[in-house]
Design a protein around this nucleic acid. Structure first.
Length: 884
RNA sequence: GGGCGGGUAGCUCAGCAGGGAGAGCAUCGGCCUUACAAGCCGAGGGUCACAGGUUCAAGUCCUGUUCCGCCUACCA
């Protein structure tokens, strides 16, 4: 491998090459040891899915955690896979069939399912490849699919056991029906959207009396299925009515007027038409008042034969016709525009039809109780904490979960019904005859289970449950779940319930809920808005590492990420900066036998960078442990760019170029050590570029993934921070910055070498002269004099770290300009000083504030006073010269 | 209706346990200084949404107001 680096970092081939290498070397494989172990199960993307920003963020964060723990020596399992996405996948294949001019009914159930498997084989794995492009270090050899044999067995066992425990039942209830997908949906799967509709006021004439009751509805077409009109028993308007029955218009059917406290007197007319088969509340009323429940809207969204003259019409067409007909009969009294929430299918956006139907339900209360308790007692911690409340709210108000779906692709419900005696059998083994009457005329329920039913088992079904596998023993419960809040209820809550019930332990110790990725304007990305940014395009254009670092750097807790490609571009600069720093380092390290552990560094900048390195190591550790990815990324960014590149490399240059052999070797050791540790720290965030640099810099060491993680604290040496080195460097940097500042403000030619004189305070903590060479090279100083004495003539002045810095400019200096500059600086100091003086003049402050705070403020005050005095003295001097 | 999050520099956002307001980008000035112009060196820029309160001290804690976003809910 060539040790020289190209001038710019070219991610493309680097990424492909290293990913293949990692995979081939088995570096993502989970090991056997139990302790310490770290495990995460991936939120399985839909098998139909393509990688979007949500996936990219989600998996980048998981990868950072996993690579970090792996580097620290933990046995890491990152379990990958996909779910079978029942409805979505079926839709895909049905579209294929439609294109061929056929449909699933013509093809038949078995052949259709065969087609789905075929599709999955050909194009179902797309997202897995895309996750690899992202650098995800999943243990791919363990990849699972919710329709795999083992996971299907788990689903069956769970269904059978819950059924036998009385926690799964079948019944006729109102469910959410998608007429397009032709299936029931769970309450969660309905998206409510405010829609501009209308409130139609319709008169139902009294039976055998004049006048009528006016009801108000947003869905006039449901009136065909009305079996009552309800009013509030307290409603003064309706206390006595001319008749207790009304005539249902258009249907010529008499229906009763019932009285029920559910009806709001304030809404509409206070009279509610009751359609038990097509509205959840009406259904409740229907049950309470024993009303008939005719279905007038069929499963295909068309009116049924019970809809009389409207039979066969599409539900929306029927609405129009009914409104027209009512108008003609002069029974339509009013139409008022109304903005109201309308449910839509989360898969196809079709308007949901509440429909009476026989479905399977999970009785979730008993499961939810355990799930609530586990979070309350801290067995599982939700981060950030405020989601805990949302979790409780939902769990505490949970309603039974409709799990049957009228589609073909999914886990078939293991229930058989005897056609002779009606007995229902739910068993692990397919029954051959009725276990009550012995009849062989038994039929399996045609429905399949909600995909989320199988996803709920993911943390243990992927590890081989119901077998008691080694993997389960080692890695369940998992350490952490990383996910977006959009599936907190769909998935997280349900995993908690199932995990606790079947494994008798939580599925994960911690749940980290991350933000949503939005577009630059803060809008949710969606295909229909056309504002989606394709992660793969971003990776192609800017490189995977730049993209990952952008995501990590913006993954602040509890806040959404507004992503734009400009930002990624900015972080590409960072990657390039790192690359070029490494290029520089390599040009000096190449051929040098590095003894990183040998010798004690002497040069102040060497000691300083190692001290800073230990600080950033500790910071990364602390922030990652708290899921503050942005803080960890920010600390690394700051360190690489503004400490290593801006100061360390520049400080090291004179030695590296012109130093003696011994000091050169020492600095090279430190340079190598700094990169060694830094690359390891950065690797979880930017795996590719770090591995590439590592390979060139330490070719004998193999993959960076096998390297020993740096320590923030050394057991033997204790704290690795070097306070003296840091203080000395602060002084050097202060003087250098002061000189540069003067150079800039006075518009001096940047190339010019300037003489500088430094007047130290009476008791300087460190000798400013000690690092004269450093100051000279960093600030382009020709002659550097430190010591007491008069103010030099014709000098520009600055104060740094209690030292007065004079840049000698005799002959060139514009004295008026210098006075202005110093006055500006003084004003700044004064402003700060005023607030400190005020604070210290306050007796309450002195009495009540903690001592360390007072000491700190006093110190600051003294420092600023000193600085102010020095500045003022110099203004005075310059004035004298100016005047004279 | 209920809940949650947010309003800090021109933009995007940090600010974790109250103690001298920060970063990146953008802007302005100066530089092709032998790792990097995807760069270097400087500079300017904020009534921390508004109003009260607690405190020696509030961007940070409390109350209210307002605006924005999201989730949730059976007023047809």
């Amino acid at each position: 491998m060539d040790a020289q680096l190209d001038k710019g970092y070219e991610p493309k081939d680097v990424e492909a090459r290293w990913y293949a290498y990692w995979e081939n070397q088995g570096l993502f494989r989970a090991g056997e040891s139990r302790i310490p172990r770290y495990s995460i199960v991936i939120p399985p993307p839909n098998v139909t899915g393509v990688l979007h920003m949500g996936h990219a963020l989600n998996n980048t964060l998981q990868d950072i955690l996993c690579r970090h723990r792996r580097a620290k020596g933990d046995n890491v399992l990152w379990m990958p896979g996909t779910d079978h996405a029942g409805i979505a996948t079926q839709n895909v294949v049905e579209r294929q069939l439609a294109a061929e001019g056929t449909d699933r009914h013509a093809v038949g159930r078995d052949a259709f399912i065969e087609r789905v498997w075929q599709w999955r084989k050909q194009s179902g794995g797309a997202i897995i490849h895309q996750l690899k492009r992202l650098g995800a270090s999943c243990d791919w050899e363990r990849e699972r699919f919710t329709m795999d044999e083992g996971l299907s067995l788990a689903v069956r066992k769970v269904f059978v056991e819950l059924y036998k425990a009385g926690l799964i039942y079948q019944g006729d209830y109102i469910i959410n029906w998608c007429p397009r997908c032709h299936t029931a949906l769970a309450d969660l799967e309905v998206e409510h959207e405010d829609t501009q509709g209308a409130l139609y006021h319709i008169e139902y004439p009294f039976a055998g009396a004049a006048g009528g009751l006016v009801v108000a509805t947003t869905r006039p077409e449901t009136m065909l299925g009305d079996t009552a009109v309800a009013v509030n028993p307290e409603d003064a308007r309706y206390l006595s009515l001319p008749a207790d029955r009304v005539l249902l218009p258009l249907m010529d059917r008499e229906i009763p007027v019932i009285r029920d406290g559910y009806v709001e007197t304030g809404f509409g007319t206070g009279a509610l038409k009751v359609t038990p088969a097509h509205d959840p509340n009406d259904f409740e009323l229907g049950v309470r008042h024993r009303l008939p429940m005719p279905k007038v809207i069929g499963d295909d969204g068309r009116m049924t034969e019970l809809a009389g003259p409207y039979a066969g019409l599409d539900r929306f067409e029927a609405r129009k016709r009914i409104v027209q007909d009512l108008e003609a009969l002069e029974l339509l009294k009013k139409v008022k525009p109304l903005l109201h929430g309308v449910g839509h299918c989360y898969r196809c956006k079709t308007t949901i039809e509440p429909n009476l139907s026989k479905q399977w339900f999970v009785k979730v209360k008993p499961l939810a109780e355990k799930a609530i308790a586990a979070v309350r007692d801290g067995s599982t911690r939700i981060i950030p904490d405020h989601w805990t409340k949302t979790y409780y709210d939902w769990m505490e108000n949970i309603r039974d979960w409709c799990v049957s779906r009228q589609i073909w692709w999914g886990h078939r419900i293991p229930a058989w019904k005897c056609q002779d005696c009606g007995a229902v059998m739910v068993e692990m083994e397919d029954p051959e005859r009725c276990n009550v009457c012995g009849s062989t005329d038994i039929i399996q329920d045609p429905d399949v289970l909600d995909t989320w039913f199988s996803s709920a088992l993911w943390p243990f079904s992927t590890m081989g449950w119901p077998e008691k596998t080694e993997l389960l023993k080692t890695h369940y419960p998992t350490s952490c779940l990383v996910t977006g809040f959009d599936i907190l209820f769909f998935w997280v809550a349900r995993m908690m319930m199932m995990g606790l019930w079947f494994m008798e332990d939580v599925p994960f110790k911690e749940v980290y809920i991350h933000a949503l990725v939005r577009d630059a304007e803060g809008k949710k990305m969606s295909k229909s808005k056309g504002n989606v940014i394709d992660p793969l395009e971003v990776i192609d254009k800017y490189g995977c590492d730049a993209f990952r670092f952008t995501l990590a750097a913006h993954a602040a807790m509890g806040r959404d990420i507004k992503l734009s490609t400009e930002r990624v571009e900015g972080y590409r600069h960072f990657i390039n900066k790192l690359w070029n720093a490494a290029r520089f380092a390599l040009s000096h390290l190449d051929g040098h036998t590095v003894n990183m552990g040998q010798g004690t560094p002497e040069a102040v900048f060497d000691r300083w960078i190692l001290s800073r390195l230990s600080t950033v190591t500790a910071t990364v550790e602390k922030e990652l442990a708290a899921y503050r990815f942005n803080e960890a990324a920010g600390a690394l960014y700051q360190f690489v760019w503004h400490e290593v590149c801006d100061w360390y490399l520049e400080a090291a240059k004179p030695v590296l170029y012109n130093g003696g052999e011994r000091e050169k070797a020492m600095t090279k050791n430190v340079l190598a050590r700094a990169f060694h540790d830094l690359l390891i720290l950065l690797h979880p965030f930017v795996p590719f570029v770090t591995e590439e640099i590592w390979g060139r810099m330490f070719p004998e060491k193999g993959s960076i993934m096998r390297a020993a993680y740096p320590r923030a604290v050394d057991e033997a040496a204790g704290v690795l921070q070097d306070a003296d080195a840091e203080a000395e460097m602060r002084l050097v940097m202060g003087v250098v910055t002061a000189v540069r500042n003067i150079r800039g403000e006075m518009n001096l030619p940047p190339g010019a070498w300037l003489p500088v004189v430094v007047r130290p305070p009476e008791n300087p903590g460190h000798d400013a002269a000690a690092h004269a060479d450093l100051v000279k090279s960093l600030a382009r100083v020709s002659a550097y004099t430190v010591g007491p004495g008069e103010r030099p003539r014709g000098a520009a002045t600055a104060v740094a770290e209690e030292h007065t810095v004079y840049v000698l400019l005799e002959g060139v200096i514009d004295l008026a300009k210098e006075i202005a500059r110093l006055e500006k600086e003084t004003a700044k100091v004064e402003k700060e000083l005023v607030s400190l003086d005020k604070k210290l003049a306050n007796e309450d402050f002195l009495k009540k504030a903690p001592e360390d705070v007072i000491a700190k403020v006093k110190g600051q005050q003294a420092e600023l006073r000193e600085k102010k005095e020095r500045l003022e003295a110099n203004i005075q001097k310059v004035r004298e010269i100016h005047a004279g």
